[in-house]
């Protein structure tokens, strides 16, 4: 069995918080920034990418102005979340994980928003929760002018 190899809480421990700050600033992880993180944390670039690509939070391409997150929690699933996802995919003509070419919307799924009583639900821009959805309601949400969806809160 491997012996205890004591490491000091090094700069490496700041790797994920650093990536989070970068994503906070740019909306995604630009390559040059990952290279900088590698230098600052004293690890190789492939390690930074290996870690970043492991976690669902990080993205490597720019994000749309409106971020639509479809809850894929269990309560939402049994109340029809797959249909909600399909309807949004159809309305926006993109698949889960994609961004519309005009960078208006990014469509993602999220493990659980935690609004199980409102299932099925979606969250737009991390604040605007739409609950107890039906395909019809979804169509209405995305039929409203884009600006409105963005400003609603």
């Amino acid at each position: 069995m491997e012996a205890r190899q004591v490491l000091s809480p090094s700069k490496k421990g700041k790797l994920i918080p650093m990536l989070q700050q970068i994503q906070e600033r740019f909306g995604y992880l630009p390559e040059e920034e990952m290279v900088k993180v590698a230098q600052l944390c004293g690890v190789t670039e492939s390690k930074v990418f290996g870690a970043a690509s492991f976690y669902a939070q990080f993205r490597f391409t720019p994000i749309g102005r409106n971020r639509v997150m479809v809850c894929r929690g269990t309560a939402c699933h049994v109340q029809g979340a797959p249909q909600i996802m399909e309807t949004i995919e159809r309305e926006l003509s993109i698949k889960e994980g994609q961004t519309t070419p005009d960078l208006e919307y990014t469509l993602e799924s999220v493990a659980c928003i935690g609004c199980c009583a409102l299932a099925p639900c979606i969250m737009i821009n991390n604040k605007d929760v739409h609950g107890r959805l039906t395909p019809q309601k979804v169509t209405e949400i995305f039929a409203t002018p884009k600006r409105e969806a963005q400003d609603a809160s």
Binding site: V43, T44, S46, G50, S53, F54
Partner: peptide, 10 residues
């Protein structure tokens, strides 16, 4: 000691 590659994604 080069570390050119690593596991990525999951």
């Amino acid at each position: 000691g080069v570390g050119a590659i690593d596991f990525a994604f999951r």
